[in-house]
Design a protein around this nucleic acid. Structure first.
Lengths: 106, 106
DNA sequence: CTCATGTGCAACTCTGGTGTTGCACATGAG
DNA sequence: CTCATGTGCAACACCAGAGTTGCACATGAG
C-alpha cells in the first residue's frame, strides 16, 4: 500500500504555514523560495525547510532555472491521500452501521 | 467554510500513534483508554491525551458508562477533510492544465 | 570583470508536543 | 463497608520541529 505517501502528506499538511505555501505556489503556478518569503512573515530559510518537507512528501517538485529554483505543485500524492481518507471514512461508516444493526437487533 | 475542522483533523492525523488508536477503536467498535493502553507501547495517560486531541478534532466521541469512559469513532470530520482534500487536488490539476495549455500555445 | 541577486549550509534558540510518574478521586464487585 | 479497578489531574523530562542569523558559493546583469 502507499502508506508511506499518506504518512508524509499528512505530516506535511499538518503545518499551517506549509498549507499556505502550497496555496501560494498553486496560485502562481510556480514560485521561488525568495518570492514566497516576500508573501509570508518568515525568513527565506524557514520557507526552504518547509519546501524540503513538501518535496519529500511528494507535494511539491522543483526545477533549477539558472540561478533560481522554481517550485511547482504536484497533485498525485495529495490525491492518493484523499482516496485513502475517503476509504477510511467509508470503512468507519460500515463498521458503525454494523454495530448499530446489532444493537437494534435485541 | 469548515477550515477549522480540516485543520484539527490534519493535526490529529499527523501523529502515527493517533492513527493507530483510531484503527484500534474502529476495529473494536468501542474502547476505553485502559483497554487501548494494553495494545500500544505507551502509558494510559499518553493515550488519554491522544484521545483528547482526537476528540477536539471531532474524530472521536466518548460516553461515560459507569466508572469507565468508552470511545467510538466519528466519520463526519474525516469525511469533511477528505472532501476538502479531493477538491484541492482537483484545483491543482485545473491550474496545472491551464499552465500546460499556455506553455504549449507558444 | 564586477557586483548584485538567489541559494545552500551550519549552528543556535526556543516553543510545543509526546510521554512519564505519582497521587487523588470515583465507582462497581465482593 | 472494603477493596480493586478505571479515571482525572498535575508536575516534570525530553526531543523534534519551526524559525533565526551569519556566511559562503553560484550565476545572471551591467
Amino acid at each position: 500500500m502507499s502508506t508511506d505517501v499518506v504518512d508524509g502528506v499528512l505530516a506535511a499538511l499538518a503545518d499551517p504555514t506549509r498549507r499556505q505555501l502550497l496555496d501560494l505556489i498553486a496560485a502562481h503556478g510556480q514560485a521561488t523560495a525568495t518570492t514566497l518569503a516576500g508573501g509570508l512573515p518568515v525568513s527565506r530559510q524557514a520557507i526552504v525547510k518547509h519546501l524540503t518537507v513538501l518535496g519529500s512528501a511528494g507535494l511539491v517538485d522543483s526545477v533549477k532555472v539558472g540561478r533560481e529554483v522554481r517550485y511547482a505543485v504536484r497533485p498525485e500524492a495529495l490525491d492518493t491521500t484523499a482516496r485513502w481518507m475517503t476509504s477510511l471514512a467509508a470503512d468507519w461508516d460500515r463498521r458503525l452501521a454494523k454495530i448499530k444493526r446489532i444493537a437494534e437487533q435485541d
